[in-house]
Amino acid sequence: MAILVTLKSPIAAIGREVLDFTQHLGSLFLFFMWGFVLIFQPPFQFDKFRQQVYFIGMKSVFVICLTGAFTGMVLGLQGYYALVRYGSTAALGSAVALSLVREMGPVLTAIMIIARAGSSMTAEIGIMRISEQIDALRTMDINPMRFLVSPRIAAALICFPLLTALFDVVGLYGGYLSGSALLGLNPAFYFARAQSSVEMSDIIGGFIKSIAFAVVVVTVCCFQGYYTHTRAEFGAKGVSISTTSAVVISCVLVLVTDYVLTTFLL
């Protein structure tokens, strides 16, 4: 009897975990769909949308430029020393451009936006939840999903690809800076190889990734904030834990999604 219990309970625990995970995934998906559909419910919330584009997009420009430049520079540096062994430093342009456009651009942009905007999204919505502001919206017959989540989803869907493009371009010039300006590679080679190796399908793939990351990040971050009150911890503690888990979960999911999408896009 005792053996049966010890045998049963870990399996049951695994089963419970799997069920919990599946349920969580389902509720995340429904949360996103619900928020997404409400974007199109008139009257459109241009003001809030604009505010969020400003917050997610404009305020991230500097940090994206910075990280993009240094990512490109380090790619140029590493790529140069790796390629110089084979005497094919001319391929630096394509190495930098392809790794930026396909992988580094979308992924690092997403992770930077998580750090900059995603965490504060969770904290802001979480605080609204614990200070009853979301309940207040409901008493005013304002749909909090539409009011809070939809503009963020719409803005993220716009901002992620644009910031990714910015990251790519800045990174490309960063690679040029370290490869050509510092290490003396012919700039014409660099850009010619970058141009000839990157194809439209790579760029489209990069944008598909960045849009997928936008969905993942904004859903996880808004969800964590929106359901802060269902945590065991209350108040400020709950918000801080929500924020932490939003950042961790969305970073992990971005990398997982990246792998899955790469297998499809290659």
């Binding site: 200070s131 009853e132 008493t139």
Partner: peptide, 12 residues
């Protein structure tokens, strides 16, 4: 209806 919340629940 209107509801006045304990902690005011004003939008920050």
């Amino acid at each position: 209806f209107s509801y006045v919340f304990q902690d005011t629940a004003l939008f920050d």
